[in-house]
Design a protein around this nucleic acid. Structure first.
Lengths: 230, 230
DNA sequence: TGTACATCAGTGAACGCGCGTTCACTGATGTAC
DNA sequence: TGTACATCAGTGAACGCGCGTTCACTGATGTAC
């Protein structure tokens, strides 16, 4: 009476992810426990092995789910702000990332923090991870295609030759502008954004910064300006 | 015949820190184990309680030791480069921080990564943590006092009023220049530096950046220029 | 200089905990004819 | 539509692991007189 076997299975699989995320939120990735998942599912511990291959398998699924959720949040913000100026749009995406992170710090740290001891992320994990970055870069891409970019800030020049060469990958994503200084500025903005978040989430800035939202927004605005967004 | 009681005790206390750091290096903070420390010490597990109050106590000592070691490395680099230009000196300190981090990634992540589950860092931990930051800021401080600062890059302006107000703490450290834009630029450089390192250590940049050293050095150079160092 | 006592270092056994994973099993749900 | 068989979901017991921490103890090192 609980529906067809396939439907029940799908429901339970979704439940497991949901419970896993809740556990992540409460105790963090290192303390994620299959036995606890089973308990919350109302099953005996061995039963969850019908749904999940191992603890590492569950972690992988959770990482993918988290990347997707974050990527979606970023993309949605980008779309919502597609009529605003490029700089506001850049900030909007950054803000969405921050909001997502603050709502689930442990999930953020699962993606961008210390690797979980004894766990090696498989390759399935890489492609969902690029979604956020693509959302950010997409803003620059659109601005470049529309010819709305100001000059890149002079302080990133000159870009050392070896580095300029390395920027090829990113150049394919932005697609229009392949000025190495611009590419470097985008990369800097990107690392700075996540650097800020990691600092905020691990309280490194305690005592130094009062209003983290204001600080973050200003940092992202500044990096956007340096890139040449307006 | 192993020396006076006090000397033996001092030696074993130092051994414990040394073993703890090695364990950190090999398995990370989450897997740090008092029983394993005892084993390597050639003692029975309960014996280490003569030297250490608890696992958390050992973690705290290790954190303090790591902060001190990192702070020392940064200060030494700053001193070594005190005759170079301000910008080179800034980069030298950044490079020293990176070198330290790459040599002991787990220790770096203990300080700047995901908080260890179930462990709350006590206050003894805060003051040694500021040493690195002071070394970095000191470079700007010296340049400011000597009147060798260029204009701060325009892209950080205008600084929102609420944020400008928050920067008071940092202003006391830099001491000479209290232009909010400059303070913001320093703060950005600081978070960007650690953001880069965290990305590098957790392999977030894989595929995107080839030569991380080059990338890092350019990023730090750029942030230094933005601050107005030359 | 020698003795009596106090402090300290290290032992060994134990408590209680939670974990991931395997395995043989029962009973229910689905499928083929 | 009914029956025979195969698949699947969940059970319960068990294995083996390592952990932090406590406690009563023995024997060695230091201290006071």
């Amino acid at each position: 009476m609980t529906g067809s076997r396939a439907a029940t299975r799908a429901r339970i699989e979704a439940d497991i992810i949901r419970i896993g995320r809740r556990q992540l939120a409460e105790v963090g990735a290192a303390a994620l426990s299959l036995r606890e998942v089973a308990r919350e599912l109302g099953m005996v511990s061995s039963a969850v092995y019908r749904y999940v291959e191992s603890r590492d398998d569950l972690l992988t699924q959770l990482i993918i789910a988290a990347y997707d959720s974050l990527g979606e949040a970023a993309e949605a913000a980008s779309e919502r702000a597609s009529d605003a100026g490029d700089l506001s749009r850049w900030v909007a995406v950054g803000d969405a990332i921050r909001t997502w992170a603050l709502e689930r710090p442990h999930e953020y740290l699962l993606l961008y923090g210390t690797p979980v001891p004894g766990y090696a992320a498989p390759d399935d994990t890489v492609s969902p991870g690029t979604r956020v970055s693509l959302a950010l870069v997409g803003v620059v891409h659109d601005a470049a295609r529309a010819g709305r970019l100001d000059d890149v800030a002079p302080f990133v020049s000159p870009v050392p030759a070896a580095l300029a060469h390395d920027l090829g990958e990113l150049s394919r994503l932005i697609d229009v502008d392949d000025d190495p200084a611009r590419l470097a500025a985008v990369l800097f903005g990107w690392t700075q954004l996540f650097g800020h978040l990691s600092f905020e989430l691990t309280s490194q800035t305690r005592g130094m910064v009062g209003d983290h939202g204001e600080f973050f927004r200003h940092a992202v605005t500044s990096s956007g300006r340096a890139i040449g967004l307006r």
